[in-house]
């Protein structure tokens, strides 16, 4: 039904290179997340797909049709803006009906009413329909703007951080709703976020964008379990991955300051490496290393321990509330098969 392909898209704004050779393929029914820090070029990517920005190089295909010269109206995509603007001089109903009233569609008013009511029910905003948009809360506005996208069946939903301006609780519930909506209607979605939790929880596939380039492209598992660079490794996962510089000595990577060593089955790949250890892969209680607990952060479902050994402080997560006390000296080990090795320039080995 719908299929979106970007081929080597480049876009410059004066001196800043916003996108560099970006290629993406979003399949039908897929929930695709574009994850990246601020200024990475996420919004620009969406705007190029929607036709609001013209790429300098490369091609956009929607359903295998070349769209490079097409007007936004003719591309049949829906856009939920980052800094959303509902049409302020219209009621919520008129906002939702606006895309359906487009001269391109010419729907009878009866069908418009039916579709608007349906969308409003899905998003639970039926009671707001007669209101002016200026009087809505942030969450309500965001529902309305999502509603304006789902009243029609566009080729693709482009959502630019639709949840980022909401408080944590609302964000969580809308996240679930959105995912549910996407799965029940089977709509292709390109969702932009800088929040790794949103990305990991919602995505079928994730592309990580940094400084206009796609760093990695894969399922949430790929991204989390096989990060292709230290940048990706640090971007996903809370608490952050531990990155430890180590040198090859006597058949293992060893840290210079502390007495840590990391075995690597297939031998030395480089003289010096960065070893990535996810906090949950640090196992306190048993192991070859000893360290002092310098901070305990109990979060309920899990507890974060900061363990200092030599000059290095490792983050460690244990599930549930832990009996480990501040200042305790304990032994710990690593889940050896889950270590990540990176070159000093950040590339995965």
């Amino acid at each position: 039904m719908s299929d979106v392909r970007l081929e080597n898209i480049s876009k410059r704004f004066g001196d800043t290179l916003a996108l560099e050779e970006v290629s993406l393929h979003i399949h039908d029914d897929e929930f695709f997340v574009l994850l990246g820090p601020t200024g990475a070029g996420k919004t620009t990517t969406l705007r190029v797909i929607a036709g609001l920005e013209k790429q300098d190089d490369g091609h956009v295909y929607l359903d295998d049709m070349l769209m490079d010269g097409a007007q936004p109206a003719d591309r049949d995509v829906a856009f939920v803006f980052q800094q959303y603007s509902l049409y302020p001089n219209m009621s919520v109903y008129d906002n939702l009906a606006f895309p359906l009233r487009s001269p391109l569609r010419r729907l009878p008013e009866g069908e418009i009413r039916q579709r608007v009511t349906e969308a409003a029910e899905k998003l639970r905003i039926t009671h707001l329909l007669e209101r002016k948009t200026a009087r809505l809360s942030g969450g309500e506005m965001q529902r309305v703007s999502i509603g304006r996208a789902i009243v029609r069946q566009p080729r693709i939903f482009l959502m630019d951080e639709p949840l980022s301006n909401l408080d944590a609780k609302l964000r969580e519930s809308l996240r679930v709703e959105l995912k549910h909506l996407q799965k029940t209607q089977g709509s292709t979605t390109l969702f932009v976020t800088h929040d790794q939790i949103e990305a990991l929880t919602m995505a079928d596939r994730i592309a990580v964008l940094d400084q206009g380039r796609i760093i990695q492209n894969g399922t949430p598992f790929d991204i989390y379990d096989r990060p292709s660079t230290t940048f990706v490794a640090q971007l996903v996962g809370t608490p952050r991955i531990n990155l430890i510089a180590a040198e090859w000595q006597d058949g293992a990577y060893r840290t210079p300051g502390a007495a840590l060593s990391f075995a690597r089955q297939n031998g030395a790949a480089a003289e010096k490496v960065l070893v990535g250890v996810r906090p949950e892969d640090v196992r306190p209680g048993a192991g070859d290393f000893r360290g002092e607990v310098v901070l305990v952060e109990p979060l309920g479902v899990e507890t974060i321990l900061h363990i200092r050994t030599g000059e290095i402080t490792l983050l460690c997560v244990v599930s549930g509330l832990s009996s480990i006390q501040l200042g305790e000296v304990l032994s710990f080990g690593f889940a050896v098969e889950r270590l990540h090795f990176f070159e000093m320039n950040g590339r995965r080995l």
Binding site: A50, L52, Q71, A73, F79, Y84, S85, F98, P99, S102
Partner: peptide, 18 residues
């Protein structure tokens, strides 16, 4: 007047003039 208003309208199926 934020550009997003017109851009939203254009994505929603209107020409720039509309």
């Amino acid at each position: 007047i934020p550009r997003e208003y017109e851009e939203a309208a254009m994505v929603d199926g209107y020409t720039r003039l509309q």
